[in-house]
Design a protein around this nucleic acid. Structure first.
Lengths: 224, 224
DNA sequence: ACAGATCCTGACGAGACCTTGACGCCCGGC
DNA sequence: GCCGGGCGTCAAGGTCTCGTCAGGATCTGT
């Protein structure tokens, strides 16, 4: 059973997609604008995303840009525009397929099947372990010394963005963009606050972090 | 350089595709009917296949069926027919994308890029190594004799600008511009200070640099 | 509508970082 | 030999960034 996130601001189309996809055996979540789309994607980790380019708040390519740093599943773009340049732009921004409206539902489903067939061998272990805590990316659960710890959605978004690339530095802009959205790239204060909370919940000694390291002026790094 | 097999019985379109794909950096082979297509594919093991459904000898889905048991690369299907049922049939038979004629070349190229991107999702980390230290550009991490060394943002900017072009001289203006910005092209003093810090952190003997060389009056050079 | 959780925002001390100036060295030109 | 320019080193000042705390705004579920 695959989970799909539908991002569209047209309630009618959104509803039609939900019904069709449910009937085809997908679990469906929907988002009405770009910000909630990025957030929901980070929260729920869908297997694939259907993204309408005509959103009220963000440009479709901005959503793609926010998604792509960490989201590895297929993204199918819907658009009312059939212009070739739009297609090229979206595809090069990271979309895997591009379907112009109006479209045929059965074709959409076939394209989703084709994307999935290629997309997810996923041999990756979605569980990140350290000596002190484990992060289960699929179940969205964190345990510290065997005890389950509750994280808020924001804390989880930040943590998962970090532990997905162990040992790699993640820039402040990347973190802000993937957790709060592209418009928040300057709000580095948020990072300080929430990194503090994460350290208090996860680190054995929050004052001297062992796993969630700061690289001053650049970003943060998770070292297992 | 990827190799692509074009299967089409229309010589004119075939030729146009060959020219366009060559210009885009592909190696191109062509086949005019289904049987030679299957044989060529088996012989040459192309990275991807562009398959026209309207072939003289075999039905397009038959070619797909013959290809798919062993060919794992992406297959993009071309067709004169825009009927949804055809698309669904081809996609479910193993095609990864379906483009109706007439089509736009730039869109086709973009779709090929999208297909290829998905095929090889693991671009390995670009790591620069010397006998004494390694620079991991993607992870933004430097190790000296196996020990992680912390760099400040400015130090990192300078170092990465240098090691990206091993053996090549990088002028002072280039360095200043790429690290501090266009307004700082005269501040050569900055370079002396920070090159000194880098040498102290990376060189086995900072007084006699082995990797970070000065070219008086010109710039600096990283020699592996 | 209410209660609790969660998020945003501002202030402040501590520390890291960047900039700047001074000084000595080496080398080539006069 | 004397001089000047480019280079390397060092240290100190000022600026920016980081971590922390807490109060108020906002959201969520009942």
């Amino acid at each position: 059973m695959s989970r799909v996130l539908v991002v569209d601001d047209d309630p009618q189309l959104s509803r039609a997609l939900r019904i069709t996809l449910r009937a085809a055996g997908y679990e469906v979540e929907t988002a009405g604008d770009g910000r909630t789309a990025l957030r929901d994607a980070a929260d729920q980790h869908p297997d694939l995303v259907i993204l309408d380019l005509g959103l009220p708040d963000l440009d479709g390519t901005e959503v793609l840009a926010g998604l792509r740093p960490w989201f590895t599943g297929p993204v199918l773009v819907l658009s009312a525009r059939a212009d070739s340049q739009d297609k090229v732009g979206a595809l090069d921004a990271g979309a895997d397929d591009y379907v112009s409206k109006p479209f045929d539902m059965s074709e959409l489903l076939a394209r989703l099947r084709a994307l999935q067939r290629r997309g997810t061998p996923e041999p990756e272990d979605p569980i990140v372990r350290t000596d002190h805590f484990t992060v289960d990316l699929a179940a969205r659960q964190v345990t510290v010394d065997g005890v389950v710890v509750r994280l808020t959605p924001t804390e989880w978004g930040l943590l998962s963005a970090l532990v997905r690339t162990p040992g790699r530095l993640v820039s402040q802009r990347q973190l802000l963009q993937s957790v709060w959205g592209p418009a928040y790239q300057k709000e580095t204060h948020y990072l300080r606050v929430y990194m503090g909370q994460l350290r208090r919940k996860l680190e054995p000694d929050p004052a001297q972090p062992r796993y969630l390291h700061t690289e001053p002026g650049m970003g943060y790094r998770f070292t297992p």
